[in-house]
């Protein structure tokens, strides 16, 4: 068995919990009592050991910022809100996961799948590419053509600075 690593708390970030609590959606993180109602009903947790909402909250409260932001588990939440319906402390876990993802994005830790989606939206204005093939079919059905590339999104990316973060 692998020897268990001892985590030096001086290397953790005790402010991380307050940073999350200051984000929209993260306000209730400190109410968590670790009852684990969230994990028991989570459809993602039932198929993946990597995603355990209770444990993610615990690591965040302890200040394991690097692990929480760099590992990809916070991106696994399907936002089904089952946990939110049941949480006795009103921690609002899907909103909390979104708050943590927002911090992750700011710090440049984006899951590759989401980065790719961001790129597509920026470039095309939508999540998939429209080619001549689709437009010909639309014409046959009596529908108007759509633009193959929507430059408006790229402009929004530019104005808001989202492009710099995502791309």
């Amino acid at each position: 068995m692998k020897k268990k690593e001892i985590i030096n708390m001086d290397e953790l970030d005790p402010q991380f919990k307050y940073e999350i609590a200051s984000q929209p959606g993260g306000e209730h993180i400190l109410k968590c009592v670790q009852c684990a109602t969230c994990s028991s009903g989570c459809p993602v947790a039932s198929v993946s050991d990597k995603f355990n909402p209770r444990r993610i909250i615990r690591m965040a409260v302890l200040g394991l910022k690097d692990v929480v932001l760099k590992e990809d588990f916070v991106w696994y939440c399907a936002a089904c809100y089952t946990c939110s319906e049941r949480c006795p402390q009103d921690v609002r876990i899907p909103d909390l996961m979104a708050a943590i993802r927002n911090i992750a994005v700011k710090e440049g830790s984006i899951h590759p799948a989401y980065r790719e989606q961001g790129r597509l939206i920026g470039e095309l204005g939508r999540l998939y590419e429209v080619t001549e093939f689709e437009n010909e079919r639309r014409e046959k059905l009596g529908l108007p053509k759509v633009k193959e590339k929507n430059r408006e999104i790229a402009e929004i990316y530019g104005c808001t600075g989202v492009g710099k973060v995502v791309l």
Binding site: I6, D10, R58, L62, L64
Partner: peptide, 15 residues
């Protein structure tokens, strides 16, 4: 203090 955080299963060293 070295202790286990049983909620996360992590062993913590705190000064």
């Amino acid at each position: 203090i070295v202790s286990e955080d049983t909620d996360s299963g992590l062993i913590l060293r705190n000064t």
